[in-house]
């Protein structure tokens, strides 16, 4: 398999996942805010923090109003992390590997972008938002299913899954990081009664609420949620699970020694730490650390497979 093709399918996987995750995040936050009494709300700023794009945001918009943040995260093509930008990137990457992915998958990737673009105004409106974001999530899932069911599970497919799971693990860690800062750092008095529904919304932004309920009976507690999202072995959006999936893909790839070393570091870091026992500050440091390893891992993949030089 050509390095160029591997790189493009990897990025297609990452960008599609990014668009899907971002859609879920925006949608869940909007729904959460409807449940919180006015004046005590956490607002929209944390979403900008999750995508680590505060400077860009304040340059372009200034105040973190609902309207501004949604525009920034959904449709702003000047924000490389927006849903529309991610879908556009996914499509550009898919376009160049049309010989590798099944034809229907290319068509769906093309469609999801065109849909996101054409229906943008409803995505930005309060009433249309839910339908718009849900349909992006569904279409992204459709592509995932199409690829799983019709594409040969070869190197190309491994690179796709590798990109997807790395992006997903990264997003899970960001969401926990930002949300837990609000919730664990002596929450404001006025918000304390709503701690429960906020942790529920964290789970929902990862489509994890129902699965969490099957796993943990009793109240939704922060520590249990954090444990679930980091260490549950079977929940497909937990960091542990994503990292195991990445390991499975990597094991099938040739010349995997360097990335495997980094990945093993990551797996040890996930296995040997119980993040729910850490104090708020320690949790942040821990998440910073695993994010650095994610990055390092990406660089290893890049150096090993994508930029082969003479």
């Amino acid at each position: 398999m050509l390095s160029r093709e591997a790189e493009r399918i990897y990025w297609m996987g990452r960008y599609l996942e990014r668009a899907e995750d971002m859609s879920r995040l925006v949608n869940v936050n909007a729904l959460l805010l409807l449940d919180l009494p006015g004046g005590v709300s956490v607002g929209w700023k944390p979403l900008v923090s999750i995508t680590a794009s505060e400077p860009l945001f304040s340059d372009r918009y200034g105040e973190a109003t609902e309207r501004n943040v949604i525009r920034f995260l959904v449709s702003d093509q000047g924000n490389p992390g927006s849903i529309l930008s991610a879908l556009s990137q996914a499509r550009e990457n898919a376009r160049t590997i049309r010989d590798i992915i099944p034809r229907e998958a290319w068509e769906e990737v093309n469609n999801i972008y065109l849909h996101a673009k054409e229906d943008m105004h409803s995505g930005l409106s309060k009433r249309g938002r839910n339908v718009y974001l849900t349909s992006i999530i569904r279409r992204s899932q459709l592509i995932t299913g199409l690829l799983a069911g019709t594409m040969t599970h070869n190197y190309a497919y491994d690179f796709l899954k590798l990109g997807r799971n790395l992006e997903r693990a990264d997003m899970t860690s960001r969401i926990v990081d930002i949300r837990s800062q609000n919730l664990l750092n002596e929450p404001e008095e006025s918000l304390r009664p709503f701690e429960n529904i906020q942790w529920m919304s964290v789970l929902k932004s990862l489509s994890g609420y129902q699965m969490y309920r099957q796993h943990v009976r009793g109240p939704v507690r922060g520590a249990d949620v954090i444990h679930f999202l980091f260490k549950h072995e079977q929940f497909p959006r937990s960091i542990y699970h994503c990292v195991s999936e990445v390991a499975g893909c990597l094991r099938r790839l040739p010349r995997n020694e360097d990335p495997m070393k980094t990945l093993n570091r990551l797996r040890r870091a996930v296995r040997n730490t119980n993040p729910e026992d850490l104090p708020a500050e320690g949790l942040t440091r821990y998440i910073d650390k695993i994010q650095r390893v994610f990055n390092r891992f990406h660089q290893d993949i890049q150096a090993t497979y994508f930029s082969i030089t003479s």
């Binding site: 010349r255 082969i308 003479s310």
Partner: peptide, 25 residues
Amino acid sequence: AELVEGADLFVGSDDVVYMRTVEGP
């Protein structure tokens, strides 16, 4: 046959043409 673009190929110091693949040159 593999369908390649210019950037997929390089000429090594031995003057041999290689393609960049995930398995190496």
